[in-house]
């Protein structure tokens, strides 16, 4: 799973931004951070339109960032 790494200070973000929250640099590279490591999960049985009716939602560590992902 990819993260956006600031080429100025090395901060890593799951969500792309125009400007780095740590150094305000404006240049990022997209790099593979491997698989996320689960911190917490929840089974959802009410889900948004366009998605299956039930799945597990996770917050996990992904490199120096955090990720939100699901497993059906």
């Amino acid at each position: 799973m990819n993260v956006f790494r600031c080429t100025g200070c090395g901060a890593e973000l799951f969500e792309r931004r125009a400007s780095c929250p740590s150094c305000f640099g404006e240049s990022f590279e997209e790099v593979d951070a491997g698989e996320p490591e689960a911190i917490v999960s929840s089974r959802l049985t009410v889900t948004p339109e366009g998605f299956a009716d039930s799945y597990d939602l996770f917050i996990g560590k992904l490199g120096k960032a955090r990720a939100i992902y699901r497993k059906e």
Binding site: F14, E15, R16, V40, S41, S42, L44, V46, T47, P48, E49, G50, F51, A52, Y55, L57, I59, I68, Y69, R70
Partner: peptide
């Protein structure tokens, strides 16, 4: 549909994972 509309306030990648706003309260 309500759940999708309300979760539209999230970032693009977070939203693509399929959370509802209340799902964060579960976590």
């Amino acid at each position: 549909e309500v759940t999708r509309i309300i979760s539209s306030l999230l970032g693009d990648r977070e939203k693509a994972a399929g959370p509802s706003l209340p799902s964060f309260a579960g976590l």
